[in-house]
């Protein structure tokens, strides 16, 4: 489906994402990597699980508030057969788990630190995603 190029809201949204990551780092020395936070749900509950759960809760709460007060902002659907949704989800889960990061941890937080692992990871998943999307789409 066609979407409009929205540079202003992209910049505001990117600014909020960057601000959240930056303050988490400056305040507490923590990395806002969403795949890692989600994966930590499988670990036994420890003291360090608490902040992770809070960050996840904040993310979900943002969705809930937008859904209540401005639902037209939270659009989108996955127009694929269920089998393809499951395959894509499994690939995202296995991939981010092996790579220890996704678009947030490697892409936003790691690349800005000039981490070699994050640059290799982000360039790889970007390139593969572009090839995949162009072949399938």
């Amino acid at each position: 489906m066609t979407t409009e190029f929205t540079p202003l809201s992209a910049a505001i949204g990117g600014g909020l994402i960057g601000l959240a990551c930056a303050l988490l780092l400056i305040f507490f020395g923590k990395i806002a990597g969403i795949s890692g936070l989600i994966k930590s749900l499988f670990n036994p509950f420890t003291k360090s699980s608490r902040w992770k759960l809070c960050f996840i809760a904040g993310l979900v709460l943002a969705g809930v508030c937008v859904q209540i007060f401005k639902p037209e902002l939270l659009v989108g659907e996955l127009n694929f057969p269920p089998s393809m949704i499951i395959i894509a989800g499994l690939l995202v889960g296995i991939g981010t788990s092996l790579a220890n990061g996704c678009t947030s941890g490697h892409g936003v937080c790691g690349m800005s630190r000039f981490s070699a692992r994050s640059w290799v990871s982000t360039c790889t998943f970007m390139a593969i995603a572009i090839i995949t999307a162009n072949l399938v789409g």
Binding site: I34, I87, V92, A127, A129, I131
Partner: peptide, 26 residues
């Protein structure tokens, strides 16, 4: 391990257009 994971994640992301953060919010 890093490269394999990134390739698999790229495949899943390229197929669906959804990465973990948006997946959680949605």
């Amino acid at each position: 391990r890093l490269i394999t994971g990134s390739v698999l994640f790229g495949l899943g992301w390229g197929l669906s257009g959804i990465c973990p953060g948006p997946g959680l919010v949605q």
